[in-house]
Simulated scan of single mutants.
Amino acid sequence: MNDANDADPTFRPGETLSRLYPEVRAGGYTRHDGFIEFYTRVNALLDADSRVLDFGAGRGLWAIEPFPELHRRLRGFHERVAEVHGVDVDPVVLDNPTLKSAQVIEPGGSLPFEDAGFDLVVADHVLEHIAEEDAVRVSAELLRVLRPGGWLAARTPNKWGMIGIGARAVPNDLHTRVLKRLQPDRKAEDVFPVRYSMNTRRALSALFPPPNELVVYGHASEPTYFGSHAPAWRVAQLVDRLTPPALAPTLMVFVRKG
């Protein structure tokens, strides 16, 4: 079997990633990879008949920029399910090549779909951008379009984790400038204001109460948000090892509609 670098010659792990996580050279992923952790569980909730809504689908970065082949296979579930539809507040979603249909919505607005029409809604790094005044409506709309027994799968920074605290310490008008310094290869159009109104266990419990089933757990991935700064990565690794699970930098959120 070819490894990820053979399958996708455009992907090369960065020097800092390779030095601190040498296993990335064998297959293109590390033992802490949050992308694989999240999308492995997403795939376990899907079958060939699933209808999926990609909430905050964006331009489909994983499909148009260099990614390890295993990541592409896990994220490319549109090739293994019945349909994937997408919505976003940014018109770039109209150019997303992985969607059966794409629509632009207003922040906090209604979703243009019938009740109980989807088996799964995926929201990958989206909930942190929902404004406080929109959180109740957004959560209600996500539940409305799910069939009973369907799942919402979300990955988002923990408000009380290192990423969340750091992001909230930077005013939104400086967010792009700071990220450009830390991650010089990140495009400005992929940076959005952060709100953190749906990013604690308490908030999620209030927004998705019983009879819905809420599963939330913390996860610590590689500190790629520090760009290629190896000393900062080492500090972040130490902080992650000393941090209790409740304060892990990322929340994996799964809600089964009751």
Rank of each mutant, 00 (worst) to 15 (best):
Y217A: 04
P13K: 13
N199F: 04
T40Y: 02
T30R: 05
H71I: 02
L46M: 04
V84K: 10
E128G: 01
F208R: 05
K187N: 02
E128M: 10
A4Q: 12
L207I: 08
P97M: 06
Q183M: 14
R72K: 14
Y21Q: 11
G27S: 08
R25E: 14
N5E: 15
Y29T: 13
F11Q: 08
F11T: 03
V216H: 07
R168K: 10
V24P: 02
R12T: 15
V121A: 07
M252W: 00
N172T: 06
E128Y: 08
L120A: 09
E222Q: 08
R144L: 04
T200Y: 00
A246W: 14
D33P: 01
R201E: 14
V93G: 02
G60T: 12
E37H: 12
S50G: 06
S205N: 09
A135L: 07
F226S: 00
Y29E: 10
M252T: 03
E128L: 11
A236V: 03
D90V: 07
T40R: 13
D6Q: 15
P210N: 01
L242R: 12
P184Q: 04
T98G: 02
V194I: 06
R59N: 13
T10E: 14
T40F: 01
V87G: 03
W233A: 01
L99E: 01
L142F: 03
Q183Y: 00
P171I: 00
A188T: 11
A102W: 01
H175C: 07
R31N: 11
P112T: 05
L53S: 07
L45Y: 03
T10Y: 05
P157L: 07
S50L: 07
G166D: 04
S18Q: 11
V216S: 05
I105L: 12
E132Q: 11
A167S: 13
L74S: 01
A135I: 06
A203R: 11
V81T: 08
E83M: 12
A220N: 15
E141R: 00
T243R: 12
D173T: 11
K257D: 10
F38W: 08
I130E: 04
V121T: 08
G56F: 00
T98Q: 13
G14S: 15
L182Q: 07
L143G: 10
L127R: 07
V136Y: 01
V81L: 05
A26M: 12
G164A: 10
A135C: 05
V235D: 00
N2D: 15
G86L: 03
D185A: 15
V216F: 04
V138D: 02
S101Y: 01
A140K: 11
F11W: 15
L204Q: 08
L120V: 14
P107Y: 07
A203I: 01
A123N: 07
G27N: 09
E106A: 15
Y39F: 14
A82V: 00
V122M: 05
G109I: 07
A220D: 12
G56W: 02
P91E: 11
L207H: 08
A203T: 06
